[in-house]
């Protein structure tokens, strides 16, 4: 088993989990920095992409077999969460990608900043803070990057509503937009 694979990571740190559907390693937030330093030392020297994904609270229907041996559909609520996704590559060995995810809740979202390990996470984690509202522990310069500093709210969240636009003027295009927002046009 080569050093540059997710299996060696899972062997070294048993608290990390492997998510088969996404092909990603879920890192526990408390330990994330140590794991990252180990990864850098093993040869994953290039962190290509850092981004966030927002999942609202959702009801998931699953078919499970209960004790009597019959299949039944069970609904459970999956709590909302925000994933911070990292794509790692190795320039020295020219292999790729290893996908890491840090999971955090939507209220008071916090994650461990991996900027001290890979400098490329610097601006991208600022963007995740700006657009999703995830607080990164240990980030050297956490402030808004794409929105202006006094902006309130986090635009990329799924439940973001735009503030009242007092500068709006009616144009012919307004009717089209309204029709789309009313839901009459289904894409």
């Amino acid at each position: 088993m080569s050093k540059l694979s997710h299996e060696s990571l899972l062997k070294e740190f048993p608290e990390a989990q492997w998510d088969e559907a996404a092909g990603a390693v879920i890192l526990p937030v408390a330990n994330a920095r140590t794991i990252a330093e180990w990864l850098l030392a093993s040869g994953w020297d290039y962190c290509s992409n850092v981004t966030g994904v927002d999942y609202l609270e959702a009801e998931v229907k699953e078919k499970i077999t209960n004790d009597a041996g019959e299949t039944e559909t069970v609904t459970r609520t999956e709590a909302g969460r925000i994933d911070v996704v990292y794509h790692l590559y190795s320039m020295a060995n020219k292999t790729g990608p290893l996908v890491l995810k840090q999971r955090t809740g939507r209220e008071g979202a916090t994650a461990e900043s991996l900027t001290p390990v890979w400098r490329s996470c610097d601006l991208q984690e600022r963007e995740v803070y700006d657009l999703f509202g995830v607080n990164f522990n240990g980030h050297p310069d956490q402030r808004r990057i794409l929105m202006w500093d006094e902006f309130e709210g986090h635009p990329m969240r799924k439940d973001y509503t735009e503030p009242f636009d007092y500068e709006w003027e009616p144009t012919p295009h307004a009717e089209i937009l309204e029709k789309h927002q009313r839901g009459k046009v289904i894409v």
Binding site: N49, T51, V53, H87
Partner: peptide, 29 residues
């Protein structure tokens, strides 16, 4: 390196669409 990270959820629209912009990351230094 221009990268696109797409998460599909079975509908006609992507769930998450992310552009990895080379110009932004090159500005780090």
């Amino acid at each position: 390196e221009l990268g696109f990270y797409l998460i599909a959820d079975g509908t006609t629209k992507p769930y998450r669409y992310r552009v990895r912009p080379p110009s932004l990351i090159n500005l780090t230094v």
